[in-house]
């Protein structure tokens, strides 16, 4: 799964937003945030599938912490996009 397709989905972007808000979340916490803050009431299975896509794209990583599994945001693949199409100083100045 490439990074572009991974971030094309609004639910997956909301997942990344929430993981940026707080790193190291359980599936339960993520699902609570998605339903309460974004109105996304997908099943836990559906969210797990979204997490698998994000992990395959390198945008999140997971780790067993004690007896629970937590999820972290990984910005590396997005940084690579910025390096591939860098914003030049001239363009920045034009905007300002």
């Amino acid at each position: 799964m490439d990074v572009y397709r991974a971030i094309a989905d609004p639910t997956r972007r909301a997942i990344l937003d929430e993981l940026v808000d707080r790193s190291g979340q359980s599936l339960f916490e993520l699902c609570s945030r998605l339903i309460m803050k974004h109105g996304i009431n997908s099943s836990r299975q559906a969210i797990t599938q979204h997490l698998d896509v994000l992990e395959a794209a390198g945008l999140i990583r997971t780790r067993r912490e004690g007896r629970w599994k937590l999820h972290w945001f990984e910005g590396g693949p997005l940084k690579a996009i910025g390096e591939r199409w860098p914003i030049s100083t001239d363009e920045r100045e034009l905007k300002e």
């Binding site: 979340q25 359980s26 599936l27 339960f28 916490e29 836990r44 007896r67 629970w68 599994k69 937590l70």
Partner: peptide, 10 residues
């Protein structure tokens, strides 16, 4: 119980 804990479910 273990399956619930793994996903952080209270």
């Amino acid at each position: 119980k273990e399956a619930l804990v793994k996903d952080g479910i209270p």
